[in-house]
Amino acid sequence: MDEHLATFLRGAYEMEQAPIISFKHVSKVYSNGTVGLKDIDFSIPKGQFLVVVGLSGSGKSTLMRTINRMHEVTEGEVYVENEAVSAYKGRSLRTLRRRIGMIFQNFNLINRSSVEKNVLSGRVSYYPTWKSVMGLFSAEDKQKAVASLNRVNMSEKIYARADELSGGQQQRVAIARTLMQDPKIILADEPIASLDPLTTKTVMDILKRLNQEDGLTVIVNLHSVELAREYADRIVGLRAGELVYDEPISAVTEADLNKIYQAI
């Protein structure tokens, strides 16, 4: 093969595979001495659907929150798009967070506000504070809110109050809110833990679609091994803050996963 072409192809391949997030020897010890994370060292390539499994308290949520600096690490460094997140401060930290959408177990919508206001609130980091406070969103962004709601099939509820919706509907609105950020990464912390099996599938399917159609990197914390196997490209397992498992989905076996959930 032509040597130049080979170099070019390798370069293109590496760019495709360049990690969007990397953990470099990340540890976290809480002020009371509890170990949250212990020497976590792995990378997540762009566009991956990564599922993190592990028992409650194994450090899944903490790991996820070190990516958008909702939690600080005590040692090591997290890189997002090759930039150390610890370097961000104030406004630049907010623009980092804007690139990273987050979805929660309890949806975390503002219950007393309308669906529309909840969705628009995902856009506030694009506006100066006074405009956000006055609710002066552009016509384009209002259109965008409708479009986001359409993507999760919730546009007919746009004027409903968030607390009038069912759990599954609330989670879909939360995803629409996240889409307003134009994120490159979506972090979902136990997104289906408070949902029934049917709505679970709806929400997971939406996340998978965002991963495949928009090329978003999606990281999901899950308890359910079956769901992990069904949706993930790759599964990592945590136990007591340590990375004890890391395999692409093709190499994952049932026995492996059961081992992660065993007591030490």
Partner: peptide
Amino acid sequence: DMGPLEAMESVGASKITIIWYAVLPQIM
């Protein structure tokens, strides 16, 4: 409920925006 505050923080909102969007509706 601190949940909505966490959500607004993760969105990249400033402190005042967080208070306006996530605190005031809860306590009004």
